[in-house]
């Protein structure tokens, strides 16, 4: 009964937020609208981070890699091949998925903090490649002058910030909806079960590595699609958009949002990115210092972190020294799966 009420309230809030997002471009000025469009793209990357970190149990600092792959693929296709949004979106998602598929062998056997380390290295290496592969990426100058996108064949090009923002909003809403539906299927259940008790899932005949690879590639495709939205939103890209600080900010946003919650990831990532943009606006020069202090403060204020993903707090007194916390195996998920 209480769960039902909470679900209704949550649905109501989500609907209100969505309505607010739709009317936002008529309320705020053009500059804020373009910032909002970019924030939407980053929030979508945040969703892919939550998918890996919270749902699949693979904490990642490297989702900027498929994000960058998608953005650059979209920029190249957009300026040389087609200005149709659907084409660009598919190409960008495919590029992100391809990069994720290539890096699967590096991450799929690792767990916990090791995944953080490997994904961070992958993300940084991608930024280095972007900075040096001048013939395709334009080096550290980036790619500019990407023509305006038209959402579908025969539709007019998106000429102003409001139209671009609404396009980004529509894409994000569709993809987030798809992720939410996907997480309700068996695939989502298996992923969560693998996060909670991998040994048991393996023993019951599931190929955990295969599921994790699938999740990794799907998250890569989502991040790639988000890259395409970034290109639409700001019409130029450079390696600075995909730095290590972006990964860390998104991870912080996802942790604030409750790690495994898709809605939480959207809100958390958007919040963190908004705070960063605001800080760099009001405190030029000292923004990193304040941002770093906020990071530390936020970590202190978030005692639950990953454990909230399981909908329960860690029982007091259980130490978590191991890299792979064995605490609280969610046997309900595994039992539910067996039915």
């Amino acid at each position: 009964m209480r769960g039902e009420v909470i679900r209704r309230v949550r649905g109501g809030i989500a609907a209100l937020v969505l309505v607010g997002l739709v009317v936002a471009p008529w309320v705020v000025d053009d500059y804020t609208t373009s910032i909002l469009a970019r924030t939407l793209a980053l929030a979508l990357v945040g969703v892919s981070v939550a998918l890996l970190t919270g749902v699949a149990g693979m904490p990642t600092l490297g989702q900027t890699a498929p994000y960058a792959a998608g953005a650059y693929a979209c920029a190249v296709v957009g300026s040389r091949v087609s200005d149709v949004g659907v084409v660009q979106l598919v190409v960008a998602a495919a590029a992100g998925a391809l990069l994720a598929a290539l890096t699967v062998p590096l991450v799929v056997h690792a767990r916990g903090v090791i995944v953080l380390m490997i994904t961070l290295a992958i993300g940084e290496l991608v930024v280095i490649v972007l900075g040096r592969w001048r013939s395709v990426t334009g080096g550290t100058d980036g790619l500019a002058g990407i023509p305006a996108v038209r959402p579908f064949w025969g539709l007019p090009a998106l000429a102003d910030d409001q139209a671009r923002y609404l396009y980004a909003l529509a894409v994000v809403a569709t993809l987030v909806g798809a992720v939410l539906v996907l997480l309700r299927t068996r695939a989502g259940l298996v992923l969560r079960a693998g996060r909670d008790d991998e040994t048991r899932l393996r023993a019951s005949g599931h190929r955990v590595a295969l599921h994790l690879s699938g999740a990794h590639i799907a998250a890569g495709a989502i991040a790639g699609a988000a890259g395409s939205l970034l290109v639409v939103a700001q019409q130029y890209i450079s390696p600075a958009d995909f730095g290590f600080d972006t990964s860390a900010l998104l991870l912080l946003g996802v942790v604030i949002g409750g790690t495994a919650s898709v809605g939480g990831a959207l809100v958390g990532a958007a919040l963190v990115i908004a705070v960063r943009d605001w800080l760099f606006g009001v405190l030029p020069g000292h923004a990193p210092l304040v941002l770093g202090a906020l990071f530390v403060a936020t970590v202190y204020l978030l005692p639950t972190g990953v454990n909230r993903a399981r909908g329960r707090l860690r029982p007091p007194g259980v130490p978590a020294l191991q890299a792979n916390p064995p605490a609280a195996p969610d046997q309900a998920t595994v039992a539910e799966l067996r039915r």
């Binding site: 210092l289 530390v296 970590v299 005692p303």
Partner: peptide, 19 residues
């Protein structure tokens, strides 16, 4: 706590210290 928050904390220190 968990490794995620520890890594994020060290990142905050790196950001502030670099500044």
């Amino acid at each position: 706590g968990n490794h995620l928050s520890q890594a994020l904390l060290t990142f905050g220190v790196a950001l502030a210290g670099g500044s």
